[in-house]
Simulated scan of single mutants.
Amino acid sequence: MSAPALKRSLVDIALEQIRQRIDNGTWPLGQRLPPEPELAEIIGISRNTVREAVRVLTFSGVLDVRQGDGTYVRACADPLAAMQALARSSVEQALEARGMIEIEASRLAASRRTEDDLVDLRVALAASAARSGHEDLEDYIVHDLAFHQRVVDSAHNPVLSQLYRYFSQVIRVGLERTISDPERPQPSFDLHRDLLDAIERQDADAAAAANRALLI
């Protein structure tokens, strides 16, 4: 006799129903979901259960609840699932993915940066430089990633910025392993200055090259 199937909770079923409709385009990115009573009727589950499912999807970044306006689709994929996959990646895989984001962002930053961006970049780089070579590795990494986040933000592409924020925790773990590894060559801090200089003079190729050198 086979073992009975595990009974799924009603919240799980509601989550699946909402995700399916997002995945198949019924509720595309930016779409406002039906009001809660209508949503409960569409899914065929109580309003309390639907409310809890919406709460879960809001926490994970899939939905955005705007007070007095409604609930909107914020992402077509669950960032928590993506983060779980990222957490299982190797250092080399993380560096490859980091390069795909940062190098293109550096190129865009050189073309799109504003004077305010340059001010923020200089402040972030100075804070990182002040911690370079110190024994507090974690403090240095936090400030190094803050500088790179500023570079990505200077591309003025909110998708890249948000993606890098999700990815930063995985990058942090990779940096802890690479920087503390005496067998790995460590990039010169001058490369960070080269990156900032290239962005300042709006040289996209030089910015991409400097960022690529930082990831070797």
Score class of each variant (00 low, 15 high):
204 A>M: 04
200 E>L: 06
22 I>A: 06
30 G>L: 10
53 A>L: 04
83 M>V: 10
54 V>L: 10
88 R>I: 04
1 M>T: 15
205 D>I: 05
160 L>M: 06
189 F>P: 07
212 R>V: 00
198 A>C: 04
73 V>N: 06
44 G>I: 13
175 L>C: 02
87 A>H: 14
184 R>H: 04
86 L>R: 14
76 C>D: 14
112 R>I: 01
74 R>W: 05
2 S>K: 13
215 L>Q: 08
193 R>A: 10
93 Q>W: 11
5 A>I: 13
39 L>F: 11
179 I>T: 08
55 R>H: 08
3 A>I: 09
151 V>K: 03
129 A>P: 01
187 P>S: 00
90 S>W: 06
149 Q>L: 13
19 R>P: 00
64 D>V: 08
48 N>D: 14
160 L>D: 00
29 L>W: 14
77 A>F: 14
15 L>Q: 10
212 R>S: 13
111 S>P: 00
127 A>Y: 05
169 Q>K: 03
82 A>E: 08
98 R>N: 09
73 V>W: 08
108 L>T: 01
55 R>M: 04
11 V>R: 14
123 V>W: 07
141 I>C: 11
44 G>V: 09
18 I>G: 07
172 R>S: 04
187 P>L: 00
126 A>Y: 02
8 R>I: 04
61 G>A: 07
85 A>S: 14
177 R>L: 04
165 R>I: 00
90 S>Q: 09
199 I>T: 09
40 A>I: 10
183 E>D: 05
211 N>K: 15
81 A>C: 11
65 V>R: 15
4 P>G: 09
39 L>A: 08
117 D>T: 02
95 L>D: 04
60 S>F: 01
126 A>V: 06
54 V>D: 06
56 V>G: 02
187 P>E: 00
18 I>P: 02
22 I>W: 10
198 A>D: 01
142 V>C: 06
63 L>S: 01
147 F>Y: 12
188 S>G: 13
17 Q>D: 08
204 A>D: 08
86 L>M: 12
28 P>G: 07
23 D>S: 15
189 F>W: 12
25 G>T: 10
16 E>T: 13
11 V>M: 09
204 A>K: 05
52 E>S: 04
165 R>K: 03
186 Q>T: 02
38 E>Y: 06
81 A>M: 14
69 D>F: 15
193 R>W: 15
39 L>S: 08
160 L>Y: 03
209 A>P: 00
51 R>C: 01
38 E>D: 08
159 V>R: 11
3 A>R: 15
76 C>T: 15
180 S>E: 14
171 I>T: 11
205 D>Y: 05
169 Q>M: 04
86 L>S: 12
82 A>S: 07
197 D>N: 03
41 E>D: 10
148 H>Y: 06
168 S>P: 01
165 R>M: 01
213 A>I: 01
77 A>P: 03
173 V>N: 10
165 R>Q: 03
184 R>D: 03
155 A>T: 03
52 E>Y: 00
78 D>E: 15
202 Q>V: 00
198 A>S: 06
